[in-house]
Structure formats: structure tokens, C-alpha cells
Amino acid sequence: MPAETPTPVAPTSDRVEALYDALLYVVSHDVKSPLVSITLGAELLETASSGGEETARVALDAIRHGAKDLERQLEAVTVISRARRRPLDDTPRALGALLAEIAPLAAPALEGVTVAVDPRPITELLAVSPDPATIEVDVRPSEVRLVLSLPEDTTDLEGSPLELLLGSLTVHAGGTITALAGLEAQLERQGGALQISGARMRLTLPRIEAGR
């Protein structure tokens, strides 16, 4: 039975608005903390000559940690920026062939499943999984769902990685969530979705009719 042709699922304006708000809030709030560390550290360093070696150590630690934290947070924002701007190829392709090398056991279930999604974010998602060969496949009329394991640092996390990252750069910048958030942003541009729960991720891709 041919798959129905799905309408590309663009992020709703409400979601875009919410993410935009979250980004502005997290940048204005979280980035300020390392800046305060650097500013205070520099000021403290000026007084170090009267405060002694201990004051100088506190000051230098604050500057070093603040700069490192700032870099980590800005790098996470850069990951999202690149994901939004990356040129994506939406040529229709067989998903089974795409996954054949990484997850050969999943290939039979994916026979006849065609997607118009750039293969790079998919293979990069599989690379995040510690055990991509154990992928679970759920083929539905209009979409296909792939469920994969995630590293243990995501065990207690649930929801959209992008929303989690924009909820707290302080907590999530530089970790698995940052990588997943960048890949989620790319999938969303192509009508896909990504959710995590209990150290597992569920990747949803819209199917298209074969031979489109």
C-alpha cells in the first residue's frame, strides 16, 4: 500500500515563538553569569597586590572558569545557528538503504519506506547513540519512527532536546543535549521531530510516496 503523502510539518508559529523567547531569555540570563565571574575576577586581580596570593588565585580561577563557561555556552548557540543555516538535501531516498550499514537488522522493516530528509543529520543522530544497531523501527502510514538508546547523561531528561537546551545553557551546553538539539533543529526544518525520554530518543520522519 503506498504511503500517504504527508504535509511537511513545519514548526508551528507558537513553537517558534516559544523557542525564540527561550533563546532570548537563556542568552540574557545564562551568559551573564560567566561574564560576572570574569568582570569580578579582573577587578579582584587589581586588588590582589594588597590581598595576597589567595586573592590572586580566586581572581584568576574566576576569570579562567568564566571564560571557559562563556565559550561553552556560545559554542552551544553556534551549534543551533549552524543547524538553522546548514544547506539540506531533500532528495527522496530509501531509508532502509540509508541505515543498511549501521543497522542491517532494521533494513527489512524499512522496505519501501522513502523519506525526503538529508541523510547527514540522521547518520549523525545514530552516531550519538551508544548502540545504534539496536534501533527499533515503527513504520506508520504517514511517518516512520526510529527509537535508539542514548548515553547515560540523558537518563533523567525528557522532551525536545532543543527546548531542554534553551531552558538552561548553563546545564546543557557542551553535552549530549547540545548535539541532539542541533540535529533536532535540522530535522524540524525537514518536517521531522526528535524527542528523548529515559535515555532513549525517538526520531520521527515523514514518509513520502515512492517515486515522487
Binding site: S33, V36, V58, G66
Partner: peptide, 12 residues
Amino acid sequence: DDEPDHALIIRH
């Protein structure tokens, strides 16, 4: 405070 630098400076 979960920011070690802020905690250190406040303590100082």
C-alpha cells in the same frame, strides 16, 4: 550557588 566562581568570590 551552583556557580563555583560566584560562590568563591562571595565567600571571599
